[in-house]
Amino acid sequence: MAALVIPEAVVERFAATKGFSSSAYVLCSAAGTVVIDPGFRDDALFNYLETLGDMDAILLTHGHWVHLAGIDALVADYPDTSAYLPAPDRDLPTDRHLNQSTPPNGFSTVVQSDIQFLEDGPHSVPGYEVVMTGTTGTTAGSSICSVRKLGLLFTGDTFMADVATTTYRPTGSGEDLKMNAKKFLTIPFDNKTRILPDHGPETTHESLLRTNHSLQETGE
């Protein structure tokens, strides 16, 4: 997508294609710069961060290798940054089986950097107030991250424009995903909230309820 410019902030999206197709986001405002769900070192993303001059935090919605693989490189360039991950995924950064960086993927991801673990609920991430909501299914700690003040919702691997995620991966659970789809439908998001998934196009909460088959089936 082109840069998403909203009052008080800009969100840039970067495609991580090395070994796996996914997206990373950079949320930037006068309050600070946060990278959400980074992947392998990506020149476009790193060059963009250089133009900003600093980075305050790395925030992961879940602990799959494709996102964990970006942490150490970012921390090496920005040693004062803080990294955050949902608490139920605390074992994934250092367990190659759980984070799926064993064959056949062909990558080995064992994170060396310090990570702070977030429980469900509101948190202060440098520059921003965020709300983490567990949407277990793709992993035990898979979460969506709301920045309500800015009308943004980062849905990670949980909810894309058309479907919910697959659940066959380690610590994934189809039953949990169904329960959390029901939970998602009870959260009073504004219809215009921007939905920013790790896969597929950006959408809005209003559109997501119309186009996401998993949410439609749950709401029937």
Rank of each mutant, 00 (worst) to 15 (best):
I71M: 09
D89C: 08
L92R: 15
A76R: 04
G63H: 05
A83C: 14
H64V: 13
G70T: 02
D91L: 15
P93I: 12
W65I: 00
L92E: 10
H97L: 12
I58W: 05
L59W: 15
G63K: 10
Q100R: 14
L98Y: 03
I71A: 11
I58F: 08
V75I: 10
I71T: 08
L60D: 04
T61A: 14
Q100V: 15
D77Q: 06
L85E: 06
H67D: 08
D72F: 03
A69K: 09
L68W: 11
P93Q: 14
D77N: 01
P79V: 01
D72E: 04
A57M: 09
R90Y: 10
L85V: 12
G70H: 01
A57H: 10
A57R: 07
T81W: 00
R96P: 04
T81L: 13
H67T: 01
A73P: 02
L98G: 00
H62L: 12
L74P: 02
W65F: 15
D77R: 04
P86I: 13
A87R: 15
V66W: 12
L85N: 11
R96A: 12
R96I: 12
A83T: 11
G70E: 01
A57N: 06
W65T: 00
W65H: 08
D77G: 00
D72C: 00
T102R: 05
H62G: 13
A69T: 08
I58P: 02
A76E: 09
A73V: 00
R96S: 11
L98Q: 03
